[in-house]
Structure formats: structure tokens, C-alpha cells
Amino acid sequence: MSKYHPTAKQKIRVLVAKPGLDGHDRGAKVVARALRDAGMEVIYTGLRQTPEMIAEAALQEDVDVIGLSVLSGAHTVLLPRIVELLRQNDMSDVLVIAGGIIPDEDVPLLKEAGVHGTFGPGTLTEDIVKFIQEHVRE
């Protein structure tokens, strides 16, 4: 069992991050608040995070979930890189989800790379909450 395992009584810890140069932070902030309202512990990185900064923050904050928001189209490069760095940090059991402008045809590539769920425009926040609760490491 991983040291990142949350017990039933512990709050789920989530890192919400904005990789790359994209400054669209509306979605990241709305999701961060919704997860907090759903009882999770949320850390928001702020803007302009490199994959290295995000992986480091995930390690330092000992999170169970990473939510990545990209609306610039750079997701196919940045997200696999982040998952790879998590692997190198021995954090493969962290649930990685992504939101933003992500065309359907890119979803298989991201899944393959280790992104567990993608949530595009129009997603209801309760669906993200449910996904996390169902898929966070047991």
C-alpha cells in the first residue's frame, strides 16, 4: 500500500495546476473551489508552471490527485511529461486528471500516457468530484 493512501477519515488532497504559458485560469479556479466545497484539500499552484515545478509540488504536498488545466493546445506535450516525472518520483499511484480544450482525438494519447480522466468544456463540477471519489487510490 502506498504512503499516499488516504484513509476514509482523511481528506483527499488535490493539486490543481496550470502547466505551460496558458493564462486561462477560470476553469482551474472554479474546479479548485468546487473540490474544496466537496470536502477536499486543494492546493492551487498559480500560473506558468513547468512540468518539473508541478511534479515537485505534487511530491512536496503529498497529494492524492493532480488536476491539470490546459486551454492552449499544448496538452499533448506537457501532460505526458508531467506523468513521466511523477513516475520518476515514485508517484505513479496519484490520480491525474485534465481539463481544458482537449479534442476527442487526443484523449487516447493522453490515456496511454497515464492521464486517467479528461474533462472538456461543459463538464459539471459534480462529475469531476464523483470521478475523483471513485478513482482515487484505495
Binding site: 504559458l21 496558458d22 506558468r48 493546445g73 499544448a74 506535450v77
Partner: peptide, 22 residues
């Protein structure tokens, strides 16, 4: 594109993955 908007040349490390995207 974003590297231009942030004043980076496309081969700068900060521009990773962003060339010509938006």
C-alpha cells in the same frame, strides 16, 4: 501564439509545446 505573447523565441525552454498552438 503563446511564446510570442510572452516574448520568448520558440526554442526557449519556457515555450515547450506551445509553438503555433493558439
Amino acid at each position: 501564439d503563446l511564446p510570442t505573447l510572452y516574448g520568448y523565441d520558440p526554442d526557449a525552454p519556457e515555450a515547450l509545446g506551445e509553438f503555433g498552438k493558439c
